[in-house]
Structures are given as C-alpha cells and as structure tokens.
Write a protein that binds this DNA or RNA. Structure first.
Lengths: 194, 194
DNA sequence: GTTCAAATGTCATTCAGTGACAAATGTCGA
DNA sequence: TCGACATTTGTCACTGAATGACATTTGAAC
C-alpha cells in the first residue's frame, strides 16, 4: 500500500505546499515564482507543475478539501429533508471541519485574501460546488424550477463566504459556528413549491 | 473636445472589443490569442494591451458598466430606507439596465459562461462591488455588526448571479425582472438590529 | 539482479504581460 | 502653412506561466 514511491510523492507534495505557502506569506503570491518554489525543495519547475496544475492550485487545493466535506455531507442527508435544512446542515459540517483545522485554514484564507488571482479562483471553485449541489438537489426534487434549485445553494454559499470573511478578519477569535447561526437567523427561506 | 485623436481612440477601442468578442464567440476565449485580436484590427498586440490590461478585461469591462449602475442607484437611495429594500431596489435597477441591452449582455454573459478564467474574474468583480456596497451600508448604520453589513449584499448578489444564470440558460426568454421577483419571494430578510 | 512502470529532468515552445525607446501622428500656436 | 509639442503606436527585448516530447533516473516486482 504505502511503498517508498508513494511516501516520497506525498512528502514532496507536502514540501512543495509548505514551501509555497511560506514564500507566499513572506513575499506575496504574485511576487513568488514557480522557480523559487521548486528551488527551495530542490526539484525542477516542471515537477512543481506536475503536482499543481497552476500556481493558484497550491492554495486552492485546500479549498477542495473543505468543499468535499460539504458535498459529502450533503449527499448523505436524508432524502425527505427540506432543501434548506439539508444545505444548512452541510454548511455547519463544513464549518466544523474548518474549526478543527482553524490555524491552517486561517493561513489559507489569508493567502486567498492577499491575491485577487487566488480570490477569483476560490470564488470559481465555490460556484462549481454550488452547481454540483444544485444538481444533487435537482435529483431530489426533479419537478422544481431551475431558479429555485439554484437559488438556495447560491444563498447558502454567500452566507458561508461572508461568515468566513468575518472570521478571518477577527483573526479567528469569533467562533465560526456562532457567526453562522447569526447569519442564518437573518435570512429566511420560504419552502420550495416543487 | 472631440478631436480626431480622441475619436480614433474610441473607435479603436470599440473595434478591438468587437473583434475580440467575435473571436471569443467563434473560437472560445482561451483559444483566441491577443495576437489574433490585434491582427484583425491591424494593430500590434502591444496596442491591444494598452487598451485592455488583460485579455479578460475585454469582457469584464462591460461588467463594470452594470456594477456601476447598481452602485450609483444604491448611493442614491434615501438614507432612511431599510437596507434590504435599498439593495433590492438597486438590483432591480441593474436588471432594468440589463434588459435594455439584452442582446448585448447575453453575448457578454455567454462569453463569461464559456471560460472559467472570465467567470472567475467576474465573480471577483462582483465581490468587489459587494464590498463597496457593504462599506456604503456601514456609513448608513455605523453601529451594526460587520457580519450583518456584509451578509445582505452578499445574499442579494447571489440572487442576482443566480437569476442572470437562469436568464442566460433560457436564452433571454424568461424576463429578468420576473425571475428576480420570484427569487426575492423565496428569500426573506429579517430586519437588521443595528 | 533484471525488467517494467512511474517519477523526474531537460529542452523547446507558446502565450500573456511589462518596460524602454524610437517612429509616427495629431494638436496648437506663430 | 509650418514647426514645436504631446500623444499614440510599433518594435524589441524580456520575464514568467504553462504545455508537450523525450530521455533519464529510480522504485517495484518477479
């Protein structure tokens, strides 16, 4: 299972990630070249690009982890549950995951906030996730209007984005889940007539 | 005022824009090079980059127009108006603008939908607009929690994005404002306690 | 240890974007 | 109308991201 080859690969990936985040934090994202990242781990730039399709992906790969948490949670929700309840539950699951790795995600989110290129990339990933969730929702209630199906996920992710933004600005002092409950209290969903 | 120089500049900008959108529509965004765009208007690639900072900006420059409509409208709303009412009113103003130039914005939005690079860029512009609106909101109700201030704009823009998405998919047949009213009926805002 | 597959390095290339400087082209006053 | 002046454009050179092809190294398995 875990031969030397795989272990090396995992380690190299982790090293590249660490070196990249370190350089990003010190010099900024745009000011760091792939060459520098590769150099500080003693590999060729080409190798870096084999592990991460683009420079942004270094940061964004971690967003994938959290979106996976959301999606997994959502697909496991009972079929009879109301869409908004299911979405909110999955959002909470994702924030629990964030909270468990708070220090780490703070670093990631700070890197994201520092560069418009990464911010754009993350927004795009979130919108992809929203599409997946919308598709899953469509399977649960096939008769519903596309607008209704797309709207709830979009709104929930807007809430998540906002909550995480405030969390990062508070340096992680305001508990994520509390913030989310406050946000959820301000927006009400009307039942979908499917 | 309008010397030959300025007129030439305006015309060239318009020509570059037209040529670019045309090529994007036919070949796709990523498959079109700056060189091609410049060639079809008989200018050097360097000149293209003097008119548009990046290739994405060709498309994105038009998003700026619509965001300006939103922001202008929002800043003109009466000070006493409830935040959610003001936001919804400005959203409607923006959609009226979209509807007035429906054919054109359909082209733009199709280009946006076709390329993840542009989609990312547009999302980023929307989030910048959301920040500006949040800042404006903060001036109206200075005592409010940052979370509350940021949440409403984020949700309204999520609604707008969703509505425009459905509109584009319907090839512009479903009226934008109708879609928006349907969306607004599904999500309710609780009053902000500032 | 030999054989096979995966990982890496090297090389070449395309394309976006930037800076510097020269050439061309309007603008405006004499 | 001519000539200084400013603006726009073209050319050249360069950096850096990203991709493809091919050779080389290095684990894996027998």
């Amino acid at each position: 299972m875990t031969g030397l080859r795989e272990r090396k690969k995992d380690k190299l990936r982790a090293d590249l990630l660490g070196a990249a985040l370190d350089l990003f934090a010190r010099q900024g994202f745009a000011e760091t070249t792939i060459h520098q990242i590769a150099d500080s781990v003693d590999v060729s730039p080409r190798t870096f690009l084999r592990y991460f399709a683009t420079k942004e992906d270094v940061v964004v790969s971690w967003v994938e982890e959290s979106t996976a948490v959301f999606l997994t949670s959502f697909l496991e929700r009972p079929a009879g549950e109301a869409p908004d309840a299911a979405l909110l539950a999955s959002a909470r699951a994702m924030l629990v995951h964030y909270t468990a790795k708070a220090e780490f995600y703070l670093t990631i989110e700070r890197a994201i906030a520092s560069s418009s290129a990464i911010r754009a990339r993350k927004l795009e990933m979130t919108s992809t996730l929203a599409e997946q969730v919308t598709a899953a929702l469509a399977q649960r209630t096939p008769k519903a209007d596309p607008l209704q199906l797309a709207l709830y996920p979009a709104v929930v992710f807007a809430m998540l984005r906002t909550v995480i933004g405030v969390w990062v600005e508070s340096e992680g002092t305001r508990p994520l889940l509390d913030l989310f409950e406050q946000a959820a209290a301000l927006v009400t969903f009307r039942p979908v007539s499917g």
